[in-house]
Design a protein around this nucleic acid. Structure first.
Lengths: 300, 300
DNA sequence: CAGCGGTTACAGTCAGAGCCTGTGACCCCC
DNA sequence: GGGGGTCACAGGCTCTGACTGTAACCGCTG
């Protein structure tokens, strides 16, 4: 027989009470069963742990030596289980989070900061990536969660955190730059600067729908990847584009942001349903809490 | 269910091989049984430890956190068992040893030194005590072993270590002091200095026999407890006495030791048979080894 | 594309471990 | 001397931790 934690628990209980009867009562089992298990432990160790006769129970020298050892093992085991439970609650471990580059500027700092404060024992790995890498990373278990923009794909779960106005982005001095608001149709005749079609299919399908609903097909004079590039081209007067208002924080000169009626850009947290761990839930909770308490899209 | 060491062993094995099948082979059990036990452990923790499908097994985040914990518990448990085994072998623990005051001067230093060297992790408590306290201490479990002189009592076990000549102790200048050897009968007419009759019955019964065998009853002019007192009285010319040769080391001036024909004084190790631990055996071995390698009675 | 070798999971069965109750021997104290 | 305390022994029950047999699934290979 090889000793189990049960034997150590029994041994410590008997050693603490120096009585099989009392220890058995505490352990909620019969004195006979306790005697049996202690005997088995003694057999495994090759020595008696207690001197016992009709007038009581005393530790032998081996028992005296073994008692602190047994206690230490039990304490260590308890600690191990407690650590495991903490991991289950998502209070310890590692969390790999991707931030879509175009949302990273305003989402990453407050989210990372708040999460680290709330869960200091979780190793949070934050990374800013493009949309394709983000989705692939979630699917292939390189990220546990991601902050990004919809629409994505069916096999990922998302939760909406914030919605902000979508704006027409015009060069400073553009005839429409002074308006308080615009409809997408107002920009039908403008030259457009957009991202390459291949960047992320679901987005471009939605763009196509939006323009069709506004009754025109945009005349694309230039395609460029990344919000800073688009803003640069707009500032240079190459054309106009359409971005979430939070993008304004990336470039304040040479461009004007005018809200487009009825359009909203959402920021969501996304994750793979098969890897729905508590730590991911905790991250969502922290981010959602943050979203109601401060305007994340203004923070950048 | 509360996790046992078995579950941790199984978990570590699966985590190390990342395969239930291979781990089961190593653990000498069926894959199904292993799966069952891991499932039980996961149920107890409230979370899966492995992501498993038909193409393999991977640790979950909780599993990654728990693995070093489980290893630590198993390591601690192994250490505890190893410590227990050392205690069984008498290589660790506490040993309470009594030395009869009249043998302590030559026995205690070499025995304690040799034992400490051989068993550095055993806490050796050495004490010099009178014969009555020594026997009572062995019987009442205050000492684990004792070095003393026979005869003792039936309920204690003894092992002889050394035998030395018994000497007549005479004042310097006594007519017989120049002799190379004496018989007890030669001292029939002398005034005697002896220990009080009450000090230890078995000894005095033997003295009585010795004197009866020598054909006289000693004329006791003074009784005094302890070898130094006897030596002092002999040196003062009050009378003669009879002591083991090793007592000479306690007083070199004013007294002369003359061997008595045929008489030997033994030094024994004594212990209680009910407390016959390995550590006691080890002490006996060390002392016996010492006895053959050096003349303990001369060492003092 | 079918078959084979690999994975784990599910279902049913069995032996034994661990627990129970009943009983006995012994010691101490009133 | 009896009552209350100790622990040990014996016999029986239950459930757990094994086993075997089977199925579902994936990916490689011929």
């Amino acid at each position: 027989m090889t000793p189990e934690l049960r034997h150590l628990r029994y041994f410590v209980a008997v050693a603490e009470h120096l009585s099989f009867t009392v220890a058995a009562r505490e352990l909620h089992l019969a004195q006979q069963s306790l005697s049996q298990q202690i005997a088995a432990l003694e057999h495994a160790l090759g020595a008696r742990l207690f001197d016992r006769d009709t007038r009581g129970t005393r530790l032998t020298e081996v028992g005296r030596v073994f008692l602190p050892e047994a206690r230490a093992v039990l304490t260590r085991a308890d600690a191990a289980l407690e650590t495991a439970r903490k991991a289950v609650r998502g209070e310890i471990g590692r969390l790999r989070v991707a931030f879509l580059v175009s949302t990273a500027n305003y989402m990453m700092p407050p989210v990372v900061r708040a999460f680290r404060e709330r869960y200091p024992d979780v190793e949070l790995l934050a990374e800013a990536v493009g949309i394709a890498g983000l989705v692939a990373g979630l699917r292939e278990d390189r990220y546990d969660a991601a902050f990004t923009r919809p629409p994505l794909v069916d096999d990922l779960v998302t939760a909406t955190l914030v919605a902000e106005p979508v704006c027409a982005v015009l060069p400073a001095g553009h005839p429409l730059a002074g308006r308080a608001g615009l409809r997408l149709a107002d920009l039908a005749g403008e030259p457009w600067v957009l991202t390459p079609r291949g960047s992320w299919e679901p987005w471009h399908r939605k763009y196509d729908e939006d323009f069709r609903a506004a009754g025109f097909e945009p005349q694309v004079v230039q395609r460029a990847d990344g919000v800073p590039s688009l803003l640069g081209l707009v500032a240079a007067g190459v054309g106009v584009t359409r971005l979430a208002r939070s993008a304004h924080s990336l470039r304040r000169t040479g461009v004007v942001f005018v809200p487009l009626a009825g359009e909203r850009a959402e920021t969501v947290m996304a994750w793979h349903p098969a890897r729905d761990r508590q730590a991911v839930r905790n991250l969502l909770d922290v981010a959602a809490e943050l979203a109601v308490s401060i305007d994340l899209t203004e923070a950048g």
